[in-house]
């Protein structure tokens, strides 16, 4: 057994646990009511859908916190045709 690894791994596990716990706490208000501010398609009760996205919100919660602060909604993808069309229109 590697004593350095034995000493480090619990700390690493603790950091991951803290990150996921913050995500889990954030996910409750997010899936309940905050979600409609970032994605207009998330409407209605849809309990199954809201439960289904909780694990992902626990991981990607900083993205949604950022979008909520910036008041941004679902982005549109950027591919070369869309960019050229945008440039042309401008």
């Amino acid at each position: 057994m590697n004593s350095f690894a034995i000493a480090c791994i619990p700390h690493l596990m603790r950091v991951i646990s803290i990150y996921l716990t913050i995500g889990a706490i954030f996910s409750i208000p997010f899936v309940t009511f905050l979600i409609r501010f970032v994605d207009p398609s998330a409407r209605g009760l849809a309990i199954g859908f809201r439960l289904l996205i909780i694990p992902g919100v626990c991981i990607f919660w900083p993205l949604f916190v950022w979008r909520l602060i910036r008041r941004k909604q679902t982005p549109t993808e950027r591919n070369i045709h869309r960019l050229r069309a945008q440039q042309n229109a401008a």
Binding site: D39, S41, I53, P55, F60, T74, E77, R78, N79
Partner: peptide, 15 residues
């Protein structure tokens, strides 16, 4: 697995 729902496609964008 956790990003398999279309919600993630829309919010992360397809690329």
């Amino acid at each position: 697995a956790i990003t398999s729902h279309d919600f993630w496609l829309a919010n992360l964008t397809a690329p």
